[in-house]
Simulated assay, not measured.
Amino acid sequence: MLDLIYPASNDLLLTIFRGGPKDEGEWAAARRSALALAESGNLLLTRSRSPQADWIEDTKLLVDAGAAAYKAAQARDTKALADVREPLDRSCTTCHRQFRPNVFPQQGGSK
């Protein structure tokens, strides 16, 4: 989480909050971050992780948010990329509330 998912989500959210990518280098970085999120979610779904239904549902939120961000970045669609902010935030907060309560508060969000 700390070495792959957190930096990718942070980079993507910072890009969104700054109004979207401004040049090809920033679009490429957005694609890399989005792909890292989607594929990290797929890794978290491997059988060696957790068979819990909640874990699977929460992880699929990350996969879906990463895939949507990648599609938006591929299309260079700033609005579609901005629309990923809420689902990405929800994927993190939903999972952390259940599986990392010592790290994430029970109430509130990352907004």
Results as ranks from 00 to 15, higher is better:
residue 29 A to M: 08
residue 97 R to G: 09
residue 20 G to W: 04
residue 13 L to P: 03
residue 108 G to D: 05
residue 20 G to M: 04
residue 44 L to V: 01
residue 33 S to C: 09
residue 76 R to N: 09
residue 62 L to M: 15
residue 46 T to Q: 13
residue 12 L to T: 00
residue 99 F to V: 04
residue 106 Q to L: 13
residue 107 Q to V: 13
residue 101 P to K: 06
residue 33 S to L: 06
residue 32 R to Y: 11
residue 111 K to L: 11
residue 83 D to Q: 12
residue 15 T to H: 02
residue 66 G to N: 02
residue 105 P to T: 13
residue 29 A to Y: 06
residue 61 L to V: 01
residue 83 D to N: 12
residue 105 P to E: 09
residue 51 P to R: 07
residue 2 L to S: 14
residue 60 K to S: 02
residue 67 A to E: 12
residue 26 E to V: 00
residue 26 E to H: 04
residue 11 D to F: 00
residue 87 P to S: 02
residue 84 V to L: 00
residue 28 A to V: 10
residue 35 L to M: 11
residue 29 A to W: 01
residue 20 G to F: 02
residue 69 A to Y: 05
residue 6 Y to Q: 13
residue 35 L to T: 14
residue 97 R to M: 11
residue 41 G to L: 03
residue 105 P to F: 02
residue 42 N to G: 11
residue 29 A to S: 11
residue 77 D to N: 15
residue 96 H to S: 09
residue 43 L to R: 13
residue 42 N to L: 14
residue 56 I to E: 03
residue 34 A to F: 03
residue 14 L to K: 14
residue 10 N to I: 04
residue 57 E to T: 12
residue 7 P to T: 00
residue 100 R to L: 14
residue 25 G to F: 03
residue 22 K to T: 09
residue 94 T to C: 02
residue 49 R to N: 13
residue 56 I to Y: 03
residue 111 K to A: 11
residue 25 G to E: 10
residue 52 Q to C: 07
residue 83 D to T: 00
residue 80 A to I: 03
residue 66 G to D: 05
residue 36 A to T: 14
residue 4 L to C: 04
residue 60 K to A: 01
residue 26 E to G: 07
residue 21 P to Y: 06
residue 5 I to P: 03
residue 84 V to P: 04
residue 23 D to G: 06
residue 79 K to L: 09
residue 86 E to Y: 07
residue 78 T to P: 06
residue 66 G to C: 02
residue 39 E to W: 09
residue 74 Q to A: 09
residue 11 D to I: 05
residue 93 T to R: 12
residue 111 K to D: 12
residue 24 E to V: 08
residue 69 A to L: 01
